[in-house]
């Protein structure tokens, strides 16, 4: 079973700072990590390989330093990695990101499955996975919480939806986007880390994958960011402190008044 896992390198979200004057994100000094939600995709690919044999190729589009994220995936257990990088990709929105990744995947076929995380924690869109499925006309299951069975022709999965779950049978090759429930990501192994240090990671530019240059990067992106700004994060709320029986009763009474005032309860 040949599995491709597209991943993204993201800034560690808890450390993101914004320049209040310019409204831009300060990336200096921020640690970059594999998108945490991609770890579930890598782990489910490793488990599938353990049970069915085959190989895992992790791919990423990003600046040259995104190679680190690919090496981390190798350390976890992926077999090989390919990076697409170059100025021509800068400023890509989800449309042109999905386009470039699809072109690379098309270049390294055949494959049985493409597995992605649900979304990246920086952009938060969740659009690239379904976008790749659309470009490559692959049957798609999003929000996949469990892989029930897989054989050479098809895969049966459980998809997490608002009301519970649904079961889908997809012919292969197919694309799954997976959620946290699917697996618990393993830590890198010693052997994996050794491999990660030495493995050669091919670097592809726009010329290496069959793409139209005008569809790449900012100029190929249908959407434009008009501006970014910092949302109001603090609210001037009432905060009460319980010290004894009396303040406990008072606090609860005031909470109930708040609930009434905001029409959260009616009586």
């Amino acid at each position: 079973m040949k599995i491709i896992v597209p991943i993204k390198q993201v800034p560690e979200t808890s450390r993101v700072k914004i320049n209040e004057e310019t409204g831009t994100i300060i990336r200096d000094g921020v640690e970059n990590i594999i998108n945490p939600l991609d770890l579930y995709a890598i782990e489910s690919a490793i488990q599938l390989r353990e049970n069915n044999g085959g190989s895992i190729t992790v791919i990423s589009m990003g600046p040259p330093k995104a190679e680190t994220a690919l090496r981390e995936a190798i350390a976890m257990g992926a077999d090989q990695a390919i990076l697409i990088t170059g100025r021509e990709f800068a400023g890509s929105d989800t449309w042109s990101t999905a386009y470039a990744l699809s072109a690379l995947i098309e270049n390294i076929k055949p494959y049985d499955l493409v597995i992605t995380g649900e979304r990246a924690t920086d952009g938060d869109t969740g659009q690239v996975g379904p976008g790749i499925a659309s470009f490559l006309n692959l049957p798609l299951s999003t929000y996949t919480g469990k892989i029930e069975t897989v054989n050479k022709d098809h895969i049966i999965v459980q998809r997490l939806i608002e009301e519970g779950y649904e079961r889908l049978q997809l012919p292969l090759p197919a694309l799954l986007t997976v959620v946290k429930e699917i697996a618990y990501p393993r830590l890198p192994t010693l052997r994996g880390k050794q491999k990660a240090r030495t493995i050669d990671i091919p670097i592809n530019s726009g010329k290496d994958i069959k793409v139209k240059e005008e569809e790449l990067g900012l100029k190929g992106s249908p959407t434009r960011v008009v501006r970014i700004y910092r949302p109001q994060v603090t609210r001037k709320g009432t905060i009460l402190q319980v010290k004894d029986e009396k303040t406990l009763a008072e606090s609860v009474d005031k909470l109930i008044s708040f609930l009434k005032e905001k029409k959260i309860v009616s009586f």
Partner: peptide, 21 residues
């Protein structure tokens, strides 16, 4: 889960932009 699956799939086919959430 429906909209966030359908819309990206569709926006690719229509060659147009989509903004999430």
């Amino acid at each position: 889960t429906q909209g966030r699956t359908l819309m990206p799939h569709l926006s690719i086919r229509l060659d147009t932009g989509l903004t999430a959430d």
